[in-house]
């Protein structure tokens, strides 16, 4: 499996494939933006933020800001930021299912945990494995919870036409694949080349997530139009 991860996909490095496909959901999101649902718009902002964070954390200039040179501090900041954006996507589900302030509590607790992790846990200059592990766990729980809610309320019928289904499926698959990887990343980093190889799993999953998000932007749920009121005209009903 490691050999496969080190191989190239149609001549591309997996990382390049992931980085380039990050643009896909943003382009798809821009297209017909006015027709998007509130969840699709929130997802668009998440995708834009994810691109900015991803490219910024890879910039040489950004890495050189710290001594020792590292982009780990950015990840300590980006993880709660992206989590907050995801909570906004699931905000309605959380408020409808639990209570009005559960999203605020969730964000507050996660930010506090991230600060603790950067200060006393993994450390600011190490990969934020614990924060990302908790992030993945919470996202998996949200996705499963949302699926359960859809199953009990039956509010959606044609799933393939619903953006929320694609978002949820992408989130569940991406975070369940990354959960153990992120938790053990600091351990794997003892062997840099091995960890680099294994981390490509995350990159492949990220590629899949981008595809799911792109589909979520392309499909639009059926809009129920109001019944037109017939008007009387000299020639009959309009």
């Amino acid at each position: 499996m490691i050999d496969f991860l080190d191989s190239k996909f149609w001549g591309f490095r997996f990382e390049a494939l992931y980085e380039w496909t990050m643009i896909l959901p943003v382009v798809a999101g821009l297209f017909a933006f006015s027709r998007h649902t509130s969840i699709q718009r929130k997802l668009f902002f998440y995708c834009v933020a994810a691109i900015i964070f991803e490219y910024f954390s890879q910039m040489r200039w950004a890495i050189d800001q710290f001594e020792p040179r590292s982009n780990a501090p950015y990840y300590h900041f980006f993880t709660p930021a992206l989590f907050i954006l995801f909570v906004f996507i699931y905000q309605k589900f959380l408020r409808d299912t639990f209570s009005r302030r559960v999203d605020i509590w969730l964000i507050a607790l996660f930010v506090l945990f991230s600060i603790w992790n950067a200060s006393f846990g993994d450390g600011l200059f190490h990969f934020p494995g614990l924060s990302l592990g908790l992030y993945a766990f919470l996202m998996m729980s949200l996705a499963i919870g949302y699926f359960l809610r859809l199953m009990t309320t039956l509010e959606l019928e044609r799933l393939e036409k619903e953006p929320v289904f694609w978002i949820n499926s992408g989130v569940l698959i991406y975070f369940s694949g990354n959960f153990l990887l992120w938790l053990t990343m600091n351990y794997l980093l003892k062997d840099y080349s091995l960890s680099f190889s294994i981390y490509k799993i995350s990159v492949i999953l990220g590629f899949c997530l981008n595809i799911f998000f792109t589909i979520a932007f392309v499909c639009h749920p059926k809009v129920v139009l109001p019944i037109p009121v017939s008007k009387k005209t000299p020639h009959g009903n309009e």
Partner: peptide, 24 residues
Amino acid sequence: ILLAGIVGMLLLSVALVVFFIVYQ
């Protein structure tokens, strides 16, 4: 073990999605 765990969780999540679609 780690790779098996990751693959296992991935399969589980895909199975959950499929189950949800079929059940729905």
